[in-house]
Amino acid sequence: MIQDIVTVFIKEFKEILQMRGTKRSGWINILVVIGVMGVYMPLMSGREWVTNLLNPISFAWLPFFLVIGVVADSFAGERERHTLETLLASRLPDASILLGKIAAGVVYSLGIGITSLLIGGVVANLGSLEEGFVYYPLDFLGILWALSLLLALLMASLGTLVSLRASSVRQASQTLSLSMLVFWVGIFLVTRFLPEEARVLLSGFFTPERLPMFVAMVVLGLVVADAVLISVAMLRFKRSRLILD
């Protein structure tokens, strides 16, 4: 099982790297993202990048967004390029195909996110080395990586689920982008039109003492959501349906 997942993962990763034509353009694409998120932005922020932890917290979302571009291609791309039926006619078990594809998307996006974060921590110090070297607190890094992983997994599972049914990569991408739009507009509307009493109640809840409990609740919620989405994707993975679609 693990060997099969790794086999699919390696193939998917090679395909992701060559998504833009050649391996070189794939690496350039990665370096551009790391250049912006891991060099330019920390350089502009300076030491505040490492001391004010709200900045790097936004990195938890980076893999979440990066993964959309690759998971939309996972099944819809195979269907579009007529490689799906041959893959399904091989000995690979259903779970290996599905988990290998999800893993490739997660590792790709998480890899870029973590690399950018780690480099950013160093780059942020460059302008003020005389004041001593400061870096993110280790517990903060641990929580951030866990959140990044769970968010990337959430999007990868959702994206794979959408890609399973989509007839083309474009359709899968559009569906995912639309669901993102609905999600963010929803959050905006809730925060914008939340009654004053509810705001006061919430701000009373989010105290520094309650932060660990809040993080634990978020992590737990994401774990459950990931597990549910992966299970649904497994249930919807039917060779006969995939072929006839």
């Binding site: 193939k11 060559q18 390029r81 007529h82 490689t83 039926e85 041959t86 006619a89």
Partner: peptide
């Protein structure tokens, strides 16, 4: 082994 309706090859690779 199978060669189905389409070659089923990954053309980027």
């Amino acid at each position: 082994g199978a060669l189905l309706e389409h070659p089923g090859l990954y053309e980027r690779l």
